[in-house]
Design a protein around this nucleic acid. Structure first.
Lengths: 212, 212
DNA sequence: GGGTCATTGTGAAATCCGTAACAGATGGCC
DNA sequence: GGCCATCTGTTACGGATTTCACAATGACCC
């Protein structure tokens, strides 16, 4: 249906939604594309264009109703319900993710945690008990799970991704420093602070005296 | 000088470099744009075009020398030296970052850690002692620091960013769930797993029966 | 050493995306 | 109630990015 909406647009919507939530918290009831753009370093035209893919949410001469637009964006993005998430990998990074308090308030519930290390199986973490990876497939099939988070070493990551995909997972948040292979129809987002750093150094270098 | 290279291209270079490092580890000495593209889900043409911004690194009929191209990319990105990094914020997230072992092997050294909580000042973390935020400016001015990592609550983040910028920092890795304002000439990368999740849900929703 | 095959580097074409600009609508004011 | 100032939604444009396609080149083989 509406499948020609550019991915860059979709990626900006959560940013808009976040800003709107902040404005709502601050007691603002109306915001213009100009004001929102100032907040986010985005041109007002881009905001209006992005929103126009989905409908007409503003009022000329006035702007957007903060609560109203926020509600519509949440609906569009599917944030008006809770999502069930599994986490695979409970090393340092996995532990931090399991105990991170930022997902649940936004509707992402980590319903199970898996690891391949039999030693850690059974230990409690972030409100769940660690299960063994061997039980991953069975769990996914008997429980509705929407999203998988991969936090295993790079060498094991593709294998984990494959198992998630085979079990029907449609979205994967990958923390492993590698590029996962997934079939068409599965959405992946990669979180890799090292890559982010490595692209910034290019720009620092550009600006510094070429001598050193 | 070479300042019309698209940012998207710069962002892909570290991905190429990572894949090349993996290939080198696997003992491969030569790789074609086709093979590298298969590995990374990128078209061969894109790889060749990206590289062509910087020079001619391949040999027709053969491909690219893995070690050679890796070395050139590292040089282009400035990864052939170590970078000095400060971390601001030692809450849950900041602690995880301070103790994350992934930065140092890639040349990013966290040389100091700051927090506004006087209770935690002096405590050791990830090999450094926590300093008080009041000393941030002085530290930055007397020590060469290239990059700042922001891991404070959203409400405090802009203030931290401003202080980093005022002290001359040129690159910021922001973990706070907000959009930082920086002057032209400062590079920012945001790490926000929640935003990543929130864009994926759109696609899951698209594919699921519209009924529910 | 010449022929063959594979693969690069690169202009040109196609596509995608962002910006500009304006017509049309809304609210406020007198 | 009419006028003015404001701000949206949208179309058209232009720029940026990706893809295409092929000439040029180097390696390998006999």
């Amino acid at each position: 249906m509406t499948l020609e909406i550019p991915e860059v647009v979709i990626n900006r919507l959560p940013v808009y939604a976040r800003a709107l939530a902040d404005l709502a918290d601050a007691g603002e009831s109306v915001v213009s594309s100009q004001a929102l753009g100032d907040l986010l370093d985005v041109t007002p035209a881009q905001i209006r264009k992005d929103l126009s893919y989905f409908g007409r949410f503003g009022k000329q001469g006035r702007g957007y109703n903060v609560q109203g637009l926020l509600a519509r964006l949440r609906e569009i993005l599917g944030l008006d319900r809770r999502w069930r998430v599994v986490l695979v990998g409970v090393g340092r990074l996995g532990q931090a993710i399991a105990e991170y308090g930022g997902f649940s308030p936004q509707g992402f519930e980590i319903v199970a945690v898996f690891d391949s290390d039999r030693e850690s199986v059974g230990k409690p973490i972030g409100g769940a008990k660690i299960r063994h990876s061997d039980d991953l497939d069975a769990f996914l099939r008997t429980n509705g799970v929407d999203i998988g988070i991969v936090a295993v070493p790079a060498l094991a990551a593709q294998q984990v991704v494959d198992r998630l995909v085979k079990a029907g997972i449609q979205a994967i948040l990958n923390y492993a420093p590698m590029t996962p292979h997934v079939p068409h129809g599965v959405t992946v987002r990669n979180i890799d602070p090292v890559l982010a750093m490595q692209s910034m150094t290019f720009y620092i270098k550009q600006r510094e005296p070429a001598g050193k």
